[in-house]
Design a protein around this nucleic acid. Sequence first.
DNA 1: GCATTTATATATACCGGTAAGTATAATTAA
DNA 2: TTAATTATACTTACCGGTATATATAAATGC
Lengths: 200, 200
Amino acid sequence: MSEKAAHTRDKGKTRRRLLAAARELFYGDGIHATGVSAVAERAGVTKMTLYAHFPSKGDLVTAYLEDSDRRWQELLEEKLSGHEDPLDKLLAVCDAYREYFTTREMRGCAFVNCAAEFPDPDHPARRVIQQHKAGVRERLRGLAAEAGAENPATLAERLFVVLEGAYVAGALEVDRGVLDRSCAFFADLVQSAVRNQTRS
Amino acid sequence: MSEKAAHTRDKGKTRRRLLAAARELFYGDGIHATGVSAVAERAGVTKMTLYAHFPSKGDLVTAYLEDSDRRWQELLEEKLSGHEDPLDKLLAVCDAYREYFTTREMRGCAFVNCAAEFPDPDHPARRVIQQHKAGVRERLRGLAAEAGAENPATLAERLFVVLEGAYVAGALEVDRGVLDRSCAFFADLVQSAVRNQTRS
DNA sequence: GCATTTATATATACCGGTAAGTATAATTAA
DNA sequence: TTAATTATACTTACCGGTATATATAAATGC
């Protein structure tokens, strides 16, 4: 049905198509290597239409990042909702990471890659990146506390470092197993941090 | 003495100047965002001279990566030579990482950043990146074995993941402390992997 | 010691391609 | 009628890379 229906008057739909195209191309090929014309073409619209939705390429980039963050959060919360025990919830973060990683091509973290392309710390895109990473860390900290870790802040930061490291290592190595082994690493850290807790 | 001596006939010196310029600009601003003219200008030479040393920008990029890897290895081996005990050597790898990181601006790993800009796994630059990371992992594995870790391969991979994670986390956060805290993390991992060893 | 050759670098202009972004007019669907 | 989109052409700017002709320092030959 939605085959030849490129002539939809639904503005939201066009915007979603543009964001989907931006996601594929920006993430897959890099941002500087992707022209706005290519994004428009992938979305099946004209460059003029793209500029009707996003005033500049920079705005499209930040919208792409915000959209990616939103999608990540949805995936994470869905994963978390499948568990009751706070310890299981904590472990589920790692699963979400792995799933998010393996779904997308082995291109590493979209936010890290974007930061590599935009060195200026004051660039608007960096704000979104910062917020995304801060969100992950904050979530980990809360779950670590709920799980009863001795030092939730330390555990959360270490888990965060492991996740980031596994992400880049998995993107660079042909060997995909590092992802799975890092999940075991993650679980070991959680276990040893919660084992010697003061049981309530 | 070497002030106004831009008219040196030393080919090696010009090449070094070009590589230094490439390092600063490629690393600091990104590769796609840096034009060959900018590199030549920074090196104080003409674009023609650049192309007399490197047949294309791609070749300059791979030379830049090879040079970076060589510099990293020199720093690492110098750090390692300051210790006798294999356990201290292992810990020194983390110090080398931190020093290498803080010397250069907070822009993360040059190899990871380059991989973000060159998605094609068959791109020549990716070969250098792969070799660099494989070298780090191999070194860690050897030192872990010498230090008498129970499972050197597992420890080495985990340490590698921590180093990579700390690198990207430090580059994204304004907080520089994550680097130092990750070194403590690194040390903890080493300690607990060596503690329960079968003493020879 | 002096001229010549050769390697290295300069200066400058150019080419084809592509990028981001704009202008304008026609078209489509509600 | 009106908002959304198309189609096409355009501007300005920069990119990687080349062409051409010149200048200079050092090694070479006599």
